[in-house]
């Protein structure tokens, strides 16, 4: 009897605890529902209306805004730029980050110093990076002055370059890598390679020395240790790096805004820039909302597989 009572009070206590913890997260839950999901829904709704004038017009337009965007030269360029930028930016950051991490992992003298030097750009805001690299890559005043001193007669035009290679035509769009984006990719990679390095370094440090030693004792070369021990062990880290870098580059705005703007013929334009301009300068609210929805879909394409994978892992644990 007494025992049964204690069991029930313990149960009650547990229930109460559950409720109290629920109460604590409730305000933020509500806030998230209203301010995140609520506004996502609102944006989705606006993107289906005719509100492309200064005066609010919420009459239904169907997919007209989306149709307009996908036929629009600027938005087509934006999509091309986003894809090219994201792929190259991630590739450069991951290769460079991994390289630096492996170098630092040698535990030589001065490691802390170099680690901080490599990490430091991350502390800057994208706006600062953008302004500085804008000066560096300015074709008439920046790095080209050095190149000219070194005897390069025809230095690159950097972000002023309007060429796209290979110049495949798809309607009026030039499909390929806009050369002007290379300057932006260098700036972005400069800022975030250090961060990627830090991620890889922590990954490398979590691999036990014994494992590496064992491989070496078995006669593995340094390359083989890297290829067959380190790389497979770094897979989850690489995956996280892709997610983090990918969502930064898909949503990039400030760096491009400060560094190049949309660029001639939109060679460095990004959906974020277009969205802000068309919404707040041009009062094309519905069009801006449609761009926002498309950006959300792009990020989801990256994030959802990641979430699915992590959930599966948690379940299997």
């Amino acid at each position: 009897m007494a025992e049964a009572q204690t069991v029930s009070t313990v149960k009650k206590g547990r229930h109460r605890e559950k409720w109290i913890s629920f109460l604590f997260v409730l305000p933020s839950l509500i806030a998230i529902f209203v301010f995140v999901y609520g506004f996502i829904a609102w944006t989705g709704y606006i993107s289906l209306t005719k509100w492309n004038t200064f005066l609010k017009d919420l009459s239904f337009a169907g997919l007209a805004n989306y149709r307009f965007l996908f036929a629009d030269f600027r938005f087509q360029s934006d999509l091309r730029n986003t894809v090219v930028f994201t792929l190259l930016f991630m590739a450069v950051c991951i290769c460079l980050g991994l390289f630096l991490a492996v170098l630092l992992d040698r535990k030589r003298k001065g490691e802390t110093l170099f680690r901080n030097i490599f990490l430091f750009p991350m502390a800057l805001s994208f706006i600062v990076t953008g302004v500085v690299w804008q000066w560096i890559f300015n074709p008439s005043t920046g790095i080209n002055l050095i190149l000219k001193q070194l005897g390069v007669d025809d230095p690159p035009l950097w972000y002023v370059q309007t060429k796209v290679i290979p110049d495949l035509h798809l309607g009026q769009l030039h499909v390929g890598l806009p050369l002007a984006l290379i300057a932006v990719i260098i700036a972005a990679a400069w800022q975030l390679s250090g961060f990627t390095m830090a991620m890889f370094l922590s990954g490398l440090r979590s691999i036990s020395d014994e494992l590496k030693e064992a491989a070496r004792v078995d006669g593995a070369t340094e390359w083989q240790v890297f290829r067959y021990i380190l790389l497979p062990a770094l897979k989850p880290i690489t995956f996280s790096a892709i997610i983090i870098l990918g969502h930064i580059s898909l949503k990039i705005f400030d760096l491009v805004y400060a560094m190049t703007g949309p660029g001639a013929a939109f060679v460095t334009d990004m959906p974020g820039l277009y969205m802000v301009e068309t919404t707040f300068k041009g009062s094309h609210y519905a069009q801006g909302a449609a761009i926002a929805v498309i950006m959300l879909v792009l990020v989801s394409l990256l994030i959802i597989p990641y979430l699915v994978l992590t959930f599966r892992k948690e379940e299997s644990l």
Partner: peptide, 17 residues
């Protein structure tokens, strides 16, 4: 209207190149 102008700016930007 601003809506016309922003669009026009885009056309000019493309035309310049």
């Amino acid at each position: 209207p601003e809506g016309f102008v922003t669009q026009f700016n885009q056309i000019i930007n493309t035309f310049v190149t």
